[in-house]
Design a protein around this nucleic acid. Structure first.
Lengths: 242, 242
DNA sequence: TTACATTTAAATGTCTGACAATTTAAACGC
DNA sequence: GCGTTTAAATTGTCAGACATTTAAATGTAA
């Protein structure tokens, strides 16, 4: 069931992989209890610290959870949407920050994905998601808002747009793309004029969703993308020349 | 720089979080060497096994890599696209398999995301990606292909389609969506007739990309989605009635 | 002087054994 | 029968030791 050849990789990595395979292949099902650390150590013929390192690796990926005490132990964890969101966001954020992704590329990806949602969103938008979008638009019009708060509200607006599509898999996928952009967006200084323009686009998008006009929503999103791109390029241009 | 309050969570989890925060906030930059395990243990006032568990957690997320020997240690890892792909795929696969995502929802998300790529793909498709798509189409026509191989070729075709968009962030995002569908697709039995139909759709998509006809590509994708949906529903209907 | 072999030191990987903390189930007493 | 106590099982943490690996420092010979 779980064996362990004598290759040269870390034992804890090998053991973690063996258990991970057992989980993804369905040999271990959700909420099933793994053998105790002592039993695993015996099974794999290693020491308990080595087993523990393997289990911590799995815990870091939310594949298992541990419980102390009698009849405690490590249990196969049901990967919930919030956990998956979280991993998705941290991975996407690191990928962008560590690989010198240009503003243009990130922006293009984000809006392409959002446009993928709009046809569904026009069909399925609920009063709830529309209200969220309207509320964020209203907040964005407040003059005293810091740039960072404006950005956060922008993210909230776009997440509501994505959630409007009513498809949890899409929401999960796009959470990373939208949130990972935030550090890049935070570098932008939003003038009163640019804020006004963005609020205008947001209003058009919300109106289009209200009236189930998919084409208008697409157009507004595309124009917002172009506008965001000019804002970003201005920032990059101002930072680059040294 | 990294402190540690006296709350009740696992020490190794707290330490891992402290180091992770230092990485994402930029205090620790790519390829920078972390203090040795002994130094970290001293700094956080814990034992070395506890530090090691924390480091293994970070290693499981590809945030650090370790190197043995003198002048070895733990280094901040540049999260590469392949690593990010891998995490994305395992997370998406688990999310789908553990949360009873219906075939319909997964299928809808996948094709919505692929449609997001087509406008860009018609602009940027290269001879290389087109050749890959044609090659996979040709393979799919081979009669001796097992269902599983047919599925794998299907995934390869769609990955080539996504890669045609020439946006690494999009490719990364969609890798999970496309690959995670594979276990669901593997449950489908592809008859000669359904294979012929799918090859027809694929050919239309490749042709549309060749001639830079975005609208035709979108239409073909939408029809392929509808067709895949009927195939999937037949399988589900055949499995459900007990 | 240069090239190669050897030594050495620093670091991670692993083991052993122990104790602390926590939690549940069973035993006990009323 | 019910509340309390005890016991057992399990994870969390620690200390110290040894093995292994790696690269720099050192020594040696051509």
């Amino acid at each position: 069931m779980k064996i362990d050849p004598d290759n040269k990789a870390d034992l804890s990595a090998q053991i973690a992989e063996a258990i991970r395979d057992a989980i993804v292949s369905g040999q271990l099902i959700v909420d099933e209890r793994l053998p105790s650390e002592a039993e695993l150590a015996d099974h794999f013929a290693v020491s308990r610290p080595t087993v523990r390192e393997a289990l911590k690796r799995l815990a870091a990926q939310s594949l298992i959870r541990t419980q102390r005490g009698a009849f405690g132990g490590a249990f196969v964890n049901r990967l919930s949407y919030p956990e998956a969101y979280g991993q998705q966001i941290t991975t996407a954020t690191l990928l962008l920050s560590m690989n010198a992704i240009s503003f243009d590329v990130a922006c293009e990806a984000r809006y392409a994905l959002e446009r993928a949602c709009t046809p569904l969103a026009t069909l399925r938008r609920t009063p709830d998601t529309l209200a969220t979008m309207r509320a964020e638009i209203h907040r964005q019009g407040h003059p005293g808002l810091t740039d960072e708060s404006f950005c956060a509200s922008d993210v909230a607006f776009h997440r509501a747009l994505v959630d409007s599509a009513g498809n949890p898999v899409l929401s999960y996928q796009l959470a990373g793309a939208v949130e990972a952009m935030q550090p890049l967006m935070n570098m932008i200084t939003f003038t009163a004029r640019s804020r006004e323009a963005i609020v205008g686009f947001h209003t058009r998008i919300a109106d289009a969703l209200s009236s189930s006009d998919a084409e208008a929503a697409q157009t507004a999103l595309t124009e917002l993308e172009a506008y965001t791109l000019t804002l970003g390029r201005d920032v990059m241009a101002a930072r680059a020349p040294k």
